[in-house]
Design a binder for these strands. Structure first.
Lengths: 129, 129, 129, 129
DNA sequence: GTGGTCTAGACCACT
DNA sequence: GTGGTCTAGACCACC
């Protein structure tokens, strides 16, 4: 089973499913055309409600990460590269501003945070090879 | 008016207030002992309910950013530097993982993100001088 | 009913609720993952307002004693052991100074107070077995 | 000036004044018959309101730590030893229960707390000689 | 159904 | 007039 969720996490389950798929795409584990489990199968496998999986898949479809095709299931569609770039950068800047602000009040230096970024890039991109 | 909030933002009002104060502390605009507006005054100024401001200030108090003194108002108290460092780093790593994952699917490189971090550090620390 | 509060006590209701939960965790009666009553259920059971319980639970969440998950209820999460140790010791020292000062003016000896400490440690830790 | 207060502390000023006097009595620095400053003089010296000092002195009088005599000012009266012992012990037990509960959740051992008690007894009683 | 947020209005302790 | 607490009632996101 590729997809696992933590029912006790504070992160909403539908977002966990969505995030695992996006991570799979980012790391290259999921490629264009790869099939995802059916909504029913995944719901049963994870022990969550149909609606929850449906919501996750709908999100992924809206974001362009999957195509849901009637009677042929859901398949991965690596989205075109530059989409929504500005929106993403704005959101990322806002999130990073919050992190940096907190970091400064704790005397956590910028190297610590940039180190995290390099580490995660390497982990995800490393899987691609 | 130092503190402004966006009533239409998705970010809860009380968190906006809380975040503006923490940013003020991080940038050095707010220093140990500086008074914040009274709960009632700020509520009136922002056009929000007293309890909303109270919630923001209470949050700040629990986190150690302010002291609230009955009948003497609320003042800034820069908290101990190393507090909760591990919890913070864990949360930061989770948030950064999400950002990096999204970035990769958009072909946004690590330089772009580390650049944001340096920029915000400089903006906030620059104000301190 | 595990949780009881005294509506006439000087101790705020939300702190009573908070303290009962922390005592439960300290004694081992509440363990990682144990569910707490829903906010609404506990409010009805205790005959207090929903917001009062919410405040208690939010406090516990910020302190790391519980996780609140929208639509999935509130569960106990025993927090990291060494957190905030210095802040706690400072606060404890201040509280103990007050107690000892009063004790001396009443000729209450140190054995009486250290005895209390041993007694309460034993009571709480005794329940763990 | 024997008496100093911290205007920025969270502890109400009138309690700070009251506590400093009780500590003085506990440590032997203040003895039966020693005069305290007049309400007006102390208020001026500390830069606080008359009412604040008055409240502190009233508390001390009610507790039996001072006598306020018309036109002769306020003098220390070491109270009889065993007064209110049970009330005090109850209150102390409640306060200690809170401290111990928190200590256990942080894995702070009983030696740490009993050590504090011995330290403060020694500090205060040491001054008596 | 769950918690999360916001408004409105009240009373209290402290200064 | 300050913050601290409590009640009441509402709407929202999540499952």
């Amino acid at each position: 089973m590729l997809l696992t969720v933590n029912l006790k996490s504070e992160e909403p389950i539908y977002l966990q499913i969505r995030n695992r798929v996006v991570e799979g795409i980012a790391s290259g584990a999921l490629r264009e055309g790869d099939p995802l489990p059916t909504v029913r199968a995944l719901a049963a496998e994870l022990g969550v409600n149909l609606h929850t999986v449906n919501k996750a898949y709908s999100f992924l479809r809206i974001e362009g990460f999957v195509k849901m095709m009637r009677s042929r299931g859901t398949v991965v569609t690596v989205p075109r590269r530059g989409r929504d770039t500005q929106d993403f950068l704005d959101a990322a800047a806002a999130a990073i501003k919050n992190i940096v602000t907190e970091a400064i009040t704790r005397s956590v230096g910028r190297e610590e945070l940039t180190g995290m970024i390099h580490k995660i890039y390497s982990e995800l991109e490393g899987k691609k090879k």
